[in-house]
Measured scan of single mutants.
Amino acid sequence: MASQGTKRSYEQMETDGERQNATEIRASVGKMIDGIGRFYIQMCTELKLSDYEGRLIQNSLTIERMVLSAFDERRNKYLEEHPSAGKDPKKTGGPIYKRVDRKWMRELVLYDKEEIRRIWRQANNGDDATAGLTHMMIWHSNLNDTTYQRTRALVRTGMDPRMCSLMQGSTLPRRSGAAGAAVKGVGTMVMELIRMIKRGINDRNFWRGENGRKTRSAYERMCNILKGKFQTAAQRAMMDQVRESRNPGNAEIEDLIFLARSALILRGSVAHKSCLPACVYGPAVASGYDFEKEGYSLVGIDPFKLLQNSQVYSLIRPNENPAHKSQLVWMACNSAAFEDLRVLSFIRGTKVSPRGKLSTRGVQIASNENMDAMESSTLELRSRYWAIRTRSGGNTNQQRASAGQISVQPAFSVQRNLPFDKPTIMAAFTGNTEGRTSDMRAEIIRMMEGAKPEEMSFQGRGVFELSDERAANPIVPSFDMSNEGSYFFGDNAEEYDN
């Protein structure tokens, strides 16, 4: 993207840094990872977990959730003011799984939030270390993106479920800051804005008074975040219109849905970061690795190297396929839920299948599930090659597409044709070009129609051997075009429920 120079890199967003050079960025990201790792080690000690239990991804998720809940100030305040039966607002906890007599047992633990905050700050040299908290939120978000298709949420806001490739980060909490905003897809931002506008339509006082002023500035800020994701002048001009509207209503909703559809071809720039579970960072720190000293990046080879040398386990339900569970977590670790499966298959070195073909449910185990038949197995999170994460949407291309997802959002900077089903997408653009945004709409449609099938995206960008740390010898991959490109292809993934 041309304006790259004016933006802070995501590592800076990730670490609240002012302008830093590459070495400083690597050190501050490393410091953040160190903090998460030290916190995780301490929690495993508190909970008396064995090494194996500490490497269980379900335990990692519970521990991450506990610290996120302990620092969720708004919710904590709300819980104190609106006490609900049987919930102690000062405590947080969740299921911890232990191996007892050759069987997995679930144990519900409860801790004072104050105590968890103390352990977290102690692991982070006394700081609140917001960057580390956001990092864990993005890992949870990436896992949700890989596990669930947001059909219901899309339909509720009037969008087409086939636009799911635009929904990265749709389950990120509001408090995820600049680093969170960077990884949100165009569809996620559109959905947040539509929800806001709908509230304004239904509630006369939404934009009024002292609160209304705050609401208005939040609305304009979200519009600017979305505008910054678009790469064409016409899309940005249309966002200006939406932002400046005196009284946002149905016309703005129409414009936003139009823009979301246009992003299936004229893709937005959305950041991709490899955020790993805390149970990967903990053992690495415990083994003596100093992330701050060595430096770390979320968008280069580092996460690949770390996963190459990590042992992570997962509980497996009786009829689940461990290899499929591994694929789910591998995609989440690489922030690749909406990437082209052919690119992923090449990088991973084994075939990556669409969601609907995987015999696996989510990673988390519900409290009512029976533990008797639970097994555990090693997650295979290694890769054959590594590639640089991208934040450009890439230019655009036609490809055989599917009944489910009709476009992709690249996660890796790797040369390819970008699949999208042009006739299906263009069919949504018939007729409606009147109104105050008509010239911009016409211009956007013209650009979409001009998108050429034979153009290559990320020209000359390749993948790298894991021994090639400096990215000196790019390998331009070859793809098996007979395979499906979309992950949520004609899909039956479970729906995400809060």
Rank of each mutant, 00 (worst) to 15 (best):
T92Q: 06
G362P: 05
I33W: 02
E14I: 07
W386D: 02
Q241A: 08
Q459E: 14
G393D: 01
V463H: 05
I406A: 13
T188I: 04
Q149Y: 06
L226C: 09
T62V: 07
D145V: 02
K98W: 09
S345D: 07
Q308T: 03
E252D: 09
R382V: 06
D101Q: 09
G180E: 08
N319P: 02
A218R: 04
T147Q: 12
I425H: 00
E80I: 12
M238K: 01
A373M: 14
L259M: 14
N395V: 03
I96R: 03
R199W: 06
S345K: 05
K305E: 04
Q58G: 08
P173H: 12
Y78E: 11
F258V: 11
I388M: 00
Y219G: 05
F429Y: 15
K31W: 04
D255S: 06
N21C: 11
Y78N: 05
P410Y: 00
R267Y: 01
K113D: 08
G180S: 02
E494M: 08
D255Q: 08
K184Q: 06
W139K: 08
L315W: 06
F458N: 00
G169T: 07
M447R: 12
R74L: 14
D439C: 00
R65V: 10
Y52Q: 00
G490D: 03
N309D: 01
T390V: 06
S170R: 09
F304M: 14
G169F: 06
W386N: 05
M196G: 10
Q364C: 11
G490W: 04
R38K: 12
Y40A: 14
I201W: 04
R461Y: 00
A332L: 04
K452A: 07
S326F: 10
E252H: 07
D480F: 13
K227G: 01
A182V: 11
W120D: 09
C279S: 07
E449P: 13
S413K: 11
A263K: 01
A153T: 13
M163L: 12
A234E: 06
W104P: 04
S413D: 00
N211V: 11
S353K: 10
T146I: 01
S353P: 15
Y111A: 04
V242N: 02
I63H: 05
M374K: 10
L133I: 15
E81F: 13
T15N: 10
E81L: 11
R199S: 07
E465M: 15
A179L: 10
F489Y: 15
L381C: 12
W386V: 09
R348K: 13
L259R: 03
R102H: 12
A2S: 00
A233I: 05
F39T: 08
I138L: 14
K351D: 01
A153H: 03
P248D: 06
Q364N: 06
D468P: 09
N21Y: 03
E11P: 01
I25E: 05
E24F: 01
N224S: 04
D34K: 00
P410N: 07
T424W: 09
N319W: 02
W120M: 12
E46T: 12
H140Y: 11
G349A: 04
A181L: 12
K103W: 03
P95N: 10
L466Y: 15
V29S: 12
C44P: 02
K229P: 09
T146V: 12
Q231R: 14
Y40E: 01
E46G: 06
P277I: 06
N417L: 15
T146F: 01
P83F: 05
G169R: 04
D302R: 09
L466G: 00
W207Q: 12
E114K: 14
N417I: 13
Q12D: 01
F304N: 05
A286P: 04
D88Y: 00
A366C: 06
N334M: 09
S314T: 13
A237K: 03
N321A: 09
G490F: 05
V408N: 08
M13V: 05
Q58D: 09
S457M: 01
A427Y: 01
R391Q: 07
M191Q: 11
L172I: 15
S482D: 15
R261Y: 04
E380R: 03
K273R: 06
S438G: 15
I475M: 14
T171V: 11
Y289S: 11
S84I: 07
D203F: 01
A278G: 14
E484C: 00
M191I: 11
C279M: 07
A323P: 10
K113I: 02
M167L: 15
E18R: 02
Y52H: 06
V312L: 13
G86Y: 03
A373E: 00
P173G: 06
R382W: 08
Q398K: 15
I475T: 11
Y40R: 14
L154W: 07
A237D: 05
Q415K: 14
G462M: 01
L306A: 13
G282K: 09
R195K: 12
I138W: 11
A263F: 02
T232R: 15
M239Y: 07
L133K: 11
C279A: 13
T23P: 01
S9D: 00
V408K: 07
V186E: 05
G362C: 03
R55A: 06
T157M: 04
T396W: 12
I197C: 11
L256V: 13
C223V: 13
G93K: 07
G212M: 14
R204T: 06
Q58R: 12
E210P: 01
P83L: 01
T433A: 06
S377W: 05
R102P: 02
L259E: 12
F258E: 09
T378W: 00
Y219P: 02
A237R: 07
E292H: 12
D16Q: 11
E14P: 00
T171M: 14
M167T: 08
N124H: 10
G295P: 10
G356M: 09
E81I: 13
D290Q: 07
R106Q: 07
A179I: 02
H272E: 09
F338L: 06
P477H: 03
S407K: 10
V299M: 14
Q241P: 04
I365C: 07
I96N: 05
E495Q: 06
P248K: 03
G462H: 12
S141R: 04
N59A: 09
L143R: 05
Q12M: 05
G180T: 06
E107N: 13
A85W: 01
F412P: 02
A471I: 03
S60Q: 09
N211Y: 13
L379C: 14
E292F: 11
G450H: 11
I36N: 00
E73T: 15
V408T: 08
D101W: 01
G288D: 07
Y296D: 10
D290K: 07
D128I: 07
H135C: 08
Y496F: 15
Y487T: 02
T15S: 08
R175I: 02
R208T: 04
S69Y: 04
I347H: 06
T92K: 04
P322Y: 06
L49R: 11
S376R: 02
L154Y: 02
S176C: 05
N224F: 10
Y281N: 07
A337K: 02
I138Q: 03
F346D: 05
N144Q: 10
M371G: 05
V190T: 14
Y219S: 13
D340C: 10
K48A: 14
N21M: 15
F479D: 03
F429C: 14
G158R: 01
M137L: 11
E73K: 13
M371D: 03
L49A: 14
G462E: 14
G349W: 10
S383L: 00
K273M: 07
A332N: 09
S3R: 03
R261D: 08
R261A: 05
Q231L: 11
A332D: 10
V312S: 06
R221D: 03
S287W: 11
G54M: 09
T146M: 03
V270E: 07
L259V: 15
G288S: 09
R55N: 04
I316C: 14
T430K: 08
F464G: 02
S367H: 05
S359V: 15
I57F: 03
Q311T: 15
G393F: 04
T130Y: 03
I444V: 14
K305W: 12
K77N: 14
Q168F: 08
N211A: 14
K7M: 01
L466A: 08
S467P: 01
I25Q: 15
E210L: 14
E64N: 11
A373L: 09
P410I: 00
K113G: 00
E292G: 13
R389G: 00
A27Q: 14
G17K: 11
Q327L: 15
A286E: 13
V299I: 10
N247Q: 06
N59I: 01
P248L: 08
T157V: 14
L344M: 07
N432H: 12
M137F: 12
V285I: 11
N319S: 12
N397M: 03
T396R: 15
I119N: 10
P95I: 06
N144T: 10
D240N: 14
G93M: 12
S84F: 00
M191T: 06
L466Q: 13
S310P: 05
F412H: 10
R384N: 14
Q4H: 08
L110A: 02
F71L: 07
S413M: 09
D101A: 12
E244L: 04
